[in-house]
């Protein structure tokens, strides 16, 4: 199974080599690590996913001596690795450019939120197709805009404050509960994806 993760790293080598320097560029102008980190992580993870999505590639992977469970699991472990890679780049970038590294809370929050997003994206992509994810995002975005303009005008501020509150929380236990629940969700999502992928027809 680690061969499968290695394969994704090799396939994504070029993409990562372009994206991570780009991440450096962003950090120069905007040291708001969390959102950029999440966006970069998700873009990379989705790109990895899309590469294997063709039914012909599924035919290949499933004809090789791998089980379907391993194929799905490798994607979930790979997602964590790619997110950590982005986090590492941010730490190095922050150090080099702003002479200060993001706080551990910022990193944890970024990783957790990426995992949260992946927990929803992966089962959705296995069930349908990853190209629909973009459409789903658009719909979500429109819904979000509608909510902002019509119902809760200061939703943006509320969210920003919420994030700030979490970051300034002194009590680590709240933080811990949050991370634990995201991990539980991630595992649940992984099991769900295995279930979906097991019955796929290529």
């Amino acid at each position: 199974m680690f061969n499968l993760i290695w394969k994704d790293l090799v396939l994504q080598k070029k993409g990562v080599m372009i994206l991570l320097p780009a991440l450096f560029g962003y950090i120069v102008f905007n040291p708001s690590y969390i959102w950029i980190g999440i966006v970069f992580s998700i873009v990379i993870i989705q790109d990895v996913f899309a590469k294997d999505e063709h039914s012909s590639i599924n035919k290949l992977l499933n004809s090789l001596p791998y089980t379907r469970q391993e194929i799905v699991t490798s994607k979930y472990i790979g997602a964590i690795i790619f997110t950590l890679l982005v986090a590492l780049t941010m730490i190095i970038g922050g150090m080099l450019i702003h002479k200060e590294i993001p706080t551990w809370k910022e990193i944890m929050l970024m990783v957790s939120l990426s995992m949260l997003a992946v927990s929803f994206i992966f089962p959705f992509s296995y069930k349908f197709k990853s190209q629909y994810i973009l459409k789903a995002f658009l719909v979500l975005f429109v819904v979000y805009m509608i909510v902002i303009t019509i119902f809760i005008h200061n939703l943006n501020d509320i969210l920003r404050e919420f994030v700030q509150t979490i970051l300034t929380l002194e009590d680590p236990s709240v933080f811990l509960v949050m991370i634990l629940s995201i991990m539980v969700l991630y595992i649940f999502s992984w099991l769900l994806s295995i279930r979906i992928y097991r019955n796929k027809v290529f």
Binding site: N3, L11, K51, S56, K59, S63, P65
Partner: peptide
């Protein structure tokens, strides 16, 4: 599956790779 070699009538390889790169990926499975 360790003991089976397979050939399909469509391309089941990653198109943007070379044969050497493809081999490196598949090799590890066997």
């Amino acid at each position: 599956k360790q003991r089976i070699g397979f050939v399909f009538d469509d391309n089941i390889f990653y198109e943007h790779l070379t044969l050497t790169e493809m081999k490196r990926i598949i090799k590890r499975a066997y």
